[in-house]
Nucleic acid binder design. Structure first.
Lengths: 197, 197
DNA sequence: TGAATTGTGCATCGAACGCTGCTTAATACC
DNA sequence: GGTATTAAGCAGCGTTCGATGCACAATTCA
């Protein structure tokens, strides 16, 4: 249902997916407006009319990315172990999916920014912090449920598994294979009992 | 011993350390020449006379960084376990050292670059690959020595511990404490026997 | 002392950056 | 049909990017 004025001459969702792919591959500052318009096949003016600014487009692209594989969903699984294992396996598979850029956009797209773009860096850091909190809460619940020992420190367990997860992004970026990432996840999950114990 | 012409009016080593600190904190593209000259307290022309170009300055800064904590040194320790543990503990401590920027320069300083700077990205990736090879060779030696089972896959062990190490950089960048990073290393080392077995 | 050599300050280069004013085109509402 | 509203094309904004030409300063060597 188009609005009142002249209808948009391009597919906004497709353009947003293109932006997500570019930002995912090159990071926020690694992608220029000219790169975006070239890949989208639209003019500068259309991009700004549709998305407002580079930063707002990036935030929309990140929101789309985050919605592809929401962390909160994994927290509903019956055990914390399931949550962590499913999360790691799904993400590892996504990181090396040849249909999308390697690694995690939220981890990699704004690790090194100029001071002008600290807000963008903090935006991604905020998402990481939120996901971290979700997992910590899930681990605390597991402890309350008796799934893991009362001596378990949720913060440490989460920090350990997030380290592995973050590291997988770098491995993917460095071109490691799906088999290698799976082996890392296998290893990480094989030691679960010892980590939580 | 100065050369023939006019002597340099600033401390080249100090300027290089300043560049290292800036690139470490902000990444290659996150630091502008104007940032460098401002922090170094020199003019643009002096920077270019002394270092050639931004990329050559960056490479020198990375070489300096790498020399601070050389991976090869850890490989001479008596066991592969020592190698990995010392590496993780030393790096974790360095990543959260308040005297230097958080995280690892080689991991973080060029994760997202524009296409123009792929050479810089590949330069850091090459260092990561070299360190990875050193560790894999060390693990293979440990297997030959009987330190770890013959069934051990050096690639998998190295991939696992490098994942943890890479992840520590992101944790440091996100402001986690030394205690939290230490706890991750404690966990990672506590499961060594299971990982190699 | 004069020549050769090297570093510095100044001014600026061309290119790319993110972004926008203005005009025209295309639609919905009345 | 007339008007309001939104989108697209064109041209260009001011700024910053990395990098440099040139004149001058400061040193060594003959």
């Amino acid at each position: 249902m188009p609005g009142r004025g002249r209808p948009r001459g391009f597919d906004r969702d497709a353009a947003l997916r293109t932006a997500m792919r570019l930002f995912w591959a090159r990071g926020y500052e690694g992608v220029a407006i000219s790169d975006l318009t070239a890949e989208m096949g639209i003019g500068t003016r259309s991009l700004y009319t549709a998305f407002g600014s580079k930063e707002r487009l990036f935030r929309e692209a990140v929101d789309l990315y985050a919605a592809l594989d929401d962390t909160a969903g994994y927290c509903d699984l019956p055990t914390a172990r399931d949550t962590v294992e499913r999360l790691l396996r799904a993400r590892a598979a996504a990181y090396v999916d040849p249909a999308t850029p390697p690694g995690c956009m939220i981890v990699l797209a704004a690790t090194n920014t100029s001071q002008d773009n600290d807000a963008v860096r903090d935006f991604l850091a905020g998402i990481r912090a939120r996901d971290r909190d979700l997992l910590t809460t899930r681990l605390a619940k597991a402890r309350a449920d008796g799934e893991v020992p009362t001596a378990t420190d949720p913060d440490t367990v989460v920090a350990f598994y997030l380290s592995v997860l973050y590291g997988l992004s770098m491995h993917a970026k460095d071109g490691r294979s799906a088999a290698e990432l799976d082996a890392v996840v296998d290893t990480a999950m094989a030691v679960w009992d010892m980590v939580v114990g």
